[in-house]
């Protein structure tokens, strides 16, 4: 299967197989005018299978959100056919309005305008904690 390389744009590599559509939707890539390729189940020496997203445009990406979805993603910024920058992601220390607190006693459950903020408390176990009520979420 042939898909053109990106001349100027972004390549999201090493996405966990099966997660690319979720990321595509969350990043709102369907709203872009430029060419976007979602490639699933690509053979990978490291992971067995992986997904790749190619975006034919340099756009602002929320790397915190991407890191939350999949901390193993590599973000490659390409300009004029050359690799401008390669970023390795990690679980972000703080997430705003990505996770939603499910504790019915949390203040966020009744006041809609309050941002849902979670802080990473255990990177190894991937546990976040709501800053308001301390409810923990394993991602």
């Amino acid at each position: 299967m042939n898909i053109d390389g990106v001349t100027t744009g972004i390549v999201l590599d090493h996405i966990q197989a099966g997660k690319s559509m979720e990321i595509y939707e969350y990043l709102g890539l369907d709203k872009l005018q430029s060419c976007v390729a979602v490639i699933q189940n690509v053979r990978s020496a490291k992971y067995g299978k992986k997904d790749i997203i190619k975006i034919d445009e340099l756009i602002d990406l929320n790397l915190d959100v991407l890191g939350y979805f999949d901390p193993n993603i590599t973000v490659n910024y390409i300009k004029d056919g050359k690799l401008l920058e390669k970023k390795h992601l990690a679980l972000p220390d703080r997430l705003t309005d990505v996770l939603h607190c499910k504790n019915p006693r949390c203040i966020t459950s009744c006041e809609q305008e309050i941002p849902h903020v979670f802080e990473l408390v255990d990177r190894e176990k991937k546990i976040y904690r709501c800053i308001y009520c301390d409810t923990q979420v394993r991602v």
């Binding site: 504790n103 006693r105 949390c106 203040i107 966020t108 459950s109 009744c110 006041e111 309050i114 709501c130 800053i131 308001y132 009520c133 301390d134």
Partner: peptide, 10 residues
């Protein structure tokens, strides 16, 4: 005092 957790922080 508030019944919702985190209200004083807000």
């Amino acid at each position: 005092r508030h019944p919702k957790e985190g209200a004083p922080m807000i």
